[in-house]
Nucleic acid binder design. Sequence first.
DNA 1: CACGACAGGATTGTCAACAAAATAGACAAT
DNA 2: ATTGTCTATTTTGTTGACAATCCTGTCGTG
Lengths: 227, 227
Amino acid sequence: MALAKPTPSSLSELEFISRRLEEDIALGRILPRERLIEEELADRFKVNRHVIRQVLSDLEGIGIIVRQRNKGATVRDLTPVDVENIYSVRELLEGKAAEMIKLPPDPAVLAELKDIHRRHSAAAASGNFTDVFRLNLLFHKTFFAACGNPQLAEAIQNFALKAHIARSLTISDPALLKRAVGEHGQMIQLMEAGDRKRFVKMVVDHIIPSKDAYMENYRRRFGMAKP
Amino acid sequence: MALAKPTPSSLSELEFISRRLEEDIALGRILPRERLIEEELADRFKVNRHVIRQVLSDLEGIGIIVRQRNKGATVRDLTPVDVENIYSVRELLEGKAAEMIKLPPDPAVLAELKDIHRRHSAAAASGNFTDVFRLNLLFHKTFFAACGNPQLAEAIQNFALKAHIARSLTISDPALLKRAVGEHGQMIQLMEAGDRKRFVKMVVDHIIPSKDAYMENYRRRFGMAKP
DNA sequence: CACGACAGGATTGTCAACAAAATAGACAAT
DNA sequence: ATTGTCTATTTTGTTGACAATCCTGTCGTG
């Protein structure tokens, strides 16, 4: 998992840096409202400032950073209302995808999911949050790709990324992590069992704890008042 | 509606050019698989090539053009499967939004929709396709913004844009256009009547004719065979 | 005639320098 | 103590030139 800069050409270089920044944001290494300064990033990734510029533009398109003309980029600061809205769409999209996934699933897909799940569990057990993050992403990507509609899968991916900003402050909570890993295991079991109804419910419910954690964390920081 | 380049600074300039290219693609002035050459566009819009580069990158992110390294950008060529997939997501998102829109609607929103509808009808009657396109976009944008979830509204907007590539070959069909305008009128009526069930069905069914038109056009060009 | 190597032109990718704008800090005035 | 204003510094935006890559047509060779 520890990748060095693999890139001969820079189309993948953009991807690499984007992923890395998404990761930093999701893991709370860069916090909401924090500034992202082009030259600093250029130095850090040993790359021309223009590459960073492009990356920031992409991240803005995805919706995880905000840019103001002549003022630079900051990590987007989601309000509870934003978070509710994002999770509401996620529920819709992921529920639909869960209804579309063939049950029982394609053996190759199932095997891949099991493998990722195994590695994800291991990373969680050893407290390697970076790997946990990547493998969680990979699990969901592989999982939803199985719905057969790449457009839908991509939209799910995009909204999951947005939600990651909201999760950044609570993502390293061991209890949440343990629960998520367990739920992945259950999802696999329900797939094999071919129990559509419980499977769909499991998928939809799976995203709730992280939202709740955000909300609780927010209340703890700002009080009960709904602004 | 005939806007001149309004832009003092170039953040809005990007928007302006993006919209213009989207329009050209949607109206079939630039066809699927057609190349988009950076320098040509730079000349056309009297702007530096870097600006075009940025725009192309954005359009790639939206998914209406495809870029290959060192080979340039082309308008994305959707397959019938792509189109089915896109419309399937549109149905899901727009149906959900229709369920969320307050009925009867906010008077201000209703008034705005009626005004746009009136202008849209007029443009359709006079055969001004550019205005038809813009006003149709505006109608849907205003309409779905009323669902109260900006994240959902944005996703709907994005998928509608993708669908526009598919519509480009049939967008100027007068029968389709007349039907669409009529359906907008009905949507407004059902909103006022507060008839949720028929309203939602109307919204979901509204997107079907354009998909059917694409499919028929595709069959006419390539035969019945499903590739 | 078919095929492949090789130029030449067209197109995209990268970079470094310059211009414009915004921020931060010092200092003065209320 | 707070606000306002000016200047120096930081940061972002824009441009032109150059490098790398790909495509096209041509020519020679079997």
